[in-house]
Design a protein around this nucleic acid. Sequence first.
RNA 1: CGGGGCGUCGUAUACCGGUAGUACGCCUGGUUUGGGACCAGGUAGAUAGGGUUCGAUUCCCUACGCCCCGACCA
Length: 416
Amino acid sequence: MRQSQLFTKTRKEAPADEVAKNAQLLIRAGFIHKEMAGVYSYLPLGLRVLTKIENIIRREMDAIGGQENKFATLHPSEVWKQTGAWDGVDVLFKIMSRTEKEYAIGQSEEEIATPIAQEYVLSYKDLPLAIYQIGQKYRDELRAKSGIMRGREFGMKDMYSFSATQDDFDKFYSIVQAAYFRAYSTCGLTAKATEASGGSFSEKLSYEFMVLTDAGEDDIVYCESCSHCANVEVSTEKEADTCPKCGKNKLKKARASEVGNVFDLGQKYPKAFGFKFMDADGESKYPVVGCFGFGTTRTMGVIVEKHADERGMVWPLSVAPFAAHLVDLSNGDERIKAMAESLYADLMKAGVDVLFDDRDARAGEKFADSDLIGIPYRIVIGKSSSDAAIEVVERKTGETKTYSREETLSGAYVLR
RNA sequence: CGGGGCGUCGUAUACCGGUAGUACGCCUGGUUUGGGACCAGGUAGAUAGGGUUCGAUUCCCUACGCCCCGACCA
């Protein structure tokens, strides 16, 4: 894409009404636009990142047999009344039409997914089933905070699983857990799995996926020698305790952000809707339901929190809005301009995801913008450039290397 | 929801009970051109409603909005 055509612009100064690093940088770089507390619009650059995160989790869910849907966001009040959540969930937005019909706005989708599954799951042969969607969630939070990390409207992948037995659910959970770890890792994050309270949602424990960051709002203790991790909300373990799992290291305490969670919902929802299936033994049974959340927008916020420096964001290649930032420093020099234009055309042909800074601006401004936006590789075309020598700078390290035109087009610029 | 803080051009800020100033941005023109360059001219502002006062952007009250701490967090 040509930057001269990109309608958003960068700002030199951070907005005065944001303290969170993720919001400051994303707004300065024109990735998002604040509508009100806890609600942000995603602009072209931000949408590119969000879409990449969505595709990462989408691939993982598809790979383990999840089937994607797009559930309704505007819900009839009846299903919420049927499960008791209409009066039991205080973050639920409720609205009334001009004809005084009541609706709920989706804050989670058990009330929608369960009746859908009920319509099609008649036999144990139809199980297990995992249906998911990626979309917006709405929650009437008393206090939105931390930029895009805790909003009233946010993006989430939510999957609902239906299993014949508790055992089947447990097996499926471990499959999903592995998929989640892969997804976070692909996004450039190291996640830990922990147990936490199920809240009013479930009597059982829930499982949470945590990424260490001071911008989070959970306190956890974890072991550096093994995978053990616990939320202090429900655990009696304390800092410097010996790890109960490996028995070796002293536990460390840290702030973390919950980027995903799993709720073992048991048979609560099938019971509320009278959803039974015919088992192999000829008995009608309630399936066991699980809910698997993956916060897409929160994950984006955490990535910014963890991958940034004093000059701006530093996107991992997997989620970067573009892989390469082609910067034209021709300043009216026709030879250089032609070289940049032709390289841009060929990069597009080669399938490289490239943002082309073809704006009529000075080098300083272009570099500053490029640093702020944080595209992993910057290809600079200026006076010293030739087909034999094209300068590529890695955003993360500042390391500069020189490649031939062919190497640049083939993606050899991906420094290793 | 409890507590605290803050609302001034598009953005970031300053001052002040009696012409609201600066920087950036934006528009014109010119000089520049590998790290947000310079000169000249221009554009644009006090959240809303009450009150005190001769006079309020400034002081007081209320509402609304935003941020932070806590509580909460399907």
